[in-house]
Nucleic acid binder design. Structure first.
Length: 468
RNA sequence: GCUCCGGUAGUAUAGUCCGGUCAAGUAUAACGGCCUCUCGAGCCGUGGACCCGGGUCCGAAUCCCGGCCGGAGCACCA
């Protein structure tokens, strides 16, 4: 599932909680042929829901409920509110476009009941018969007139992954979902606007049955700039090897967002803010990031990551320095990382790793500060290293001149690290050795680089970039 | 083509039902500043929008008509 599905899920769940209602998960797996359900999806949906923090109060699987649908279909037919249509689709369409009843519609209920029995007993092959629910033939939208409710599927050829070839008559969406919404006591339906006409159709069935249709809200499509949120496109992309899997960082799937350290709380907040408007929305990633950043900033520990490292040689370091770096700038109680800078030889040399980005930006004679350590003056630089000399220790010394603060890792304290970016490219570098203690799933901030989620800690650290 | 929806700053949203308090609020992004031993967070400030044209009215983002643009549906899919 992806960000597009989040709307129905989160809003339904939120409303259910807000009004002390129930949040019901229903698997609508009534098409073993065209939309053949895959067994592994049932569980991955449950997992996504759990990750989102949406606790399911009741769960139903429609492929278990065929007898129920049969029962109501029989009632509908018996009451003359539905009929078994044997017309070839083209012929039926011609009639319905002309607001004319097809011959089957005119048959008495008893004949249709007989046809219905025959349908269930395998008397029709795929495509030969369909149950239609009666509507006004005059309805301005031809698409709602006498809509199809159940059809025959050759389940010998297309077995259902859960119930195999047990049934050959399968309900369509409007019958199954329509009946279930009432039967399960649904008070609110929140779904995409592509279902608007389905509401119009189902209301006829509700009238036949003497039921009251629930409150229905139809929201517009949700897109996010640059990401594919179409399930079929995602599946196709994976099949063609374009994406590594459902969790490829370029995708807008929950799995991908989770991998990148986007929290469910951020998604929830955003979806609730977007609301239920009927027009399409195109969210920008920045928006999601900002919700996420608010959450992460308070909870993430800070570490140093040096991308594309180059050597920094500092000369004339007068003594051994001990740096104590807080895990969180506003929360010292979270603890510290500690590193020492011990000068070697007569020239007092200490070697660090700094990012090439900083190396490129510095100029000879410039004074810069190694964060929480000491101040240095750049002497010279070349393509692979920078040489500098110790100036002073106090931060106050350079504060007034607004010296650039850079992050660093002492040579010998590095831990190989790769950060996978949102475009699936990798940024190589070294993380500070304290990162060896991190556990997968931890979301941390690499200072001056961005928030990332730890994916694996082995011979090297692999993290996924969330955002700045 | 037919049947429905919808159009408020870059993005998203409030206001539209029940016209005035809307010279349009909020978030985010942008810009400027403050603060901070992160390019993160926080704080202060600036700029930025009612699709167009008519009509009704003392008064319209809000009501009416027309247009334009966008979306959805028109399956024996969900």
């Amino acid at each position: 599932m992806h960000l597009g599905s989040a709307r129905a899920i989160l809003l339904s769940h939120e409303y259910a909680r807000m009004y002390n209602g129930k949040f019901i998960l229903r698997f609508e797996d009534t098409d073993p042929k065209v939309k053949k359900p895959a067994l592994e999806f049932y569980d991955s949906i449950r997992k996504d829901l759990a990750w989102l923090g949406c606790k399911v109060d009741e769960e139903y699987v429609q492929s278990d409920r065929l007898p129920i649908y049969y029962e109501y279909t029989e009632k509908l037919i018996g009451d003359g509110n539905a009929y078994v249509c044997e017309c070839v689709p083209e012929h039926f369409r011609k009639l319905i476009l002309a607001k004319q009843p097809c011959p089957c519609r005119l048959l008495p209920a008893s004949d249709n009941l007989e046809r219905w029995k025959r349908m269930l007993n395998g008397g029709y092959v795929e495509g030969q018969a369909v149950v239609r629910v009666k509507t006004e033939l005059e309805h301005p939208n031809p698409a709602v007139r006498d809509w199809p409710a159940l059809r025959v599927i050759d389940t010998k050829k297309y077995p259902h992954p859960r119930v195999g070839s047990k049934y050959i008559v399968w309900p369509l969406y409007n019958l199954a979902a329509g009946l279930d919404d009432h039967l399960m006591g649904m008070t609110h339906i929140i779904r995409g606007k592509e279902h608007y006409t389905n509401m119009v159709r189902q209301k006829y069935m509700y009238e036949h049955l003497g039921w009251q249709y629930p409150e229905a809200i139809h929201y517009g499509r949700l897109k996010i700039t640059g990401a594919f949120l179409s399930k079929s496109k995602i599946v196709l992309g994976i099949k063609e090897g374009l994406y590594a899997g459902f969790d490829d960082p370029r995708l807008g799937t929950f799995m991908a967002l989770r991998k990148r350290g986007i929290t469910p709380e951020a998604i929830k907040k955003m979806i609730i803010d977007v609301g239920t408007k009927a027009n399409d929305v195109t969210l920008s990633w920045e928006n999601l990031y900002s919700y996420n950043r608010k959450i992460l900033d308070a909870t993430s520990d800070r570490y140093f990551f040096v991308s594309d490292p180059v050597e920094l040689k500092v000369l004339a370091v007068p003594k051994t320095f001990h740096a104590k770096l807080p895990l969180h700038p506003e929360k010292p109680e979270r603890g510290f990382r500690k590193y020492t800078a011990m000068p070697k030889g007569a020239e007092g040399l200490v070697i660090f790793w700094i990012t090439s980005k900083d190396a490129q930006a510095v100029e000879p004679e410039k004074v810069i500060r190694l964060m929480e350590l000491f101040n240095i003056k750049v002497e010279c630089k070349d393509a692979v290293s920078v040489t500098a000399s110790f100036v002073s220790e106090s931060y106050e010394d350079v504060r007034k001149i607004k010296a650039q603060l850079i992050h660093w890792i002492p040579r010998g304290e590095e831990f190989a690290c790769e950060v996978v970016m949102p475009d699936a490219s990798g940024v190589r570098g070294v993380a500070e050795s304290a990162c060896k203690r991190l556990k997968p799933d931890a979301i941390i901030q690499f200072e001056r680089f961005g928030f990332t989620r730890v994916n694996e800690v082995g011979t090297k650290l692999v993290a996924y970039y969330a955002h700045k």
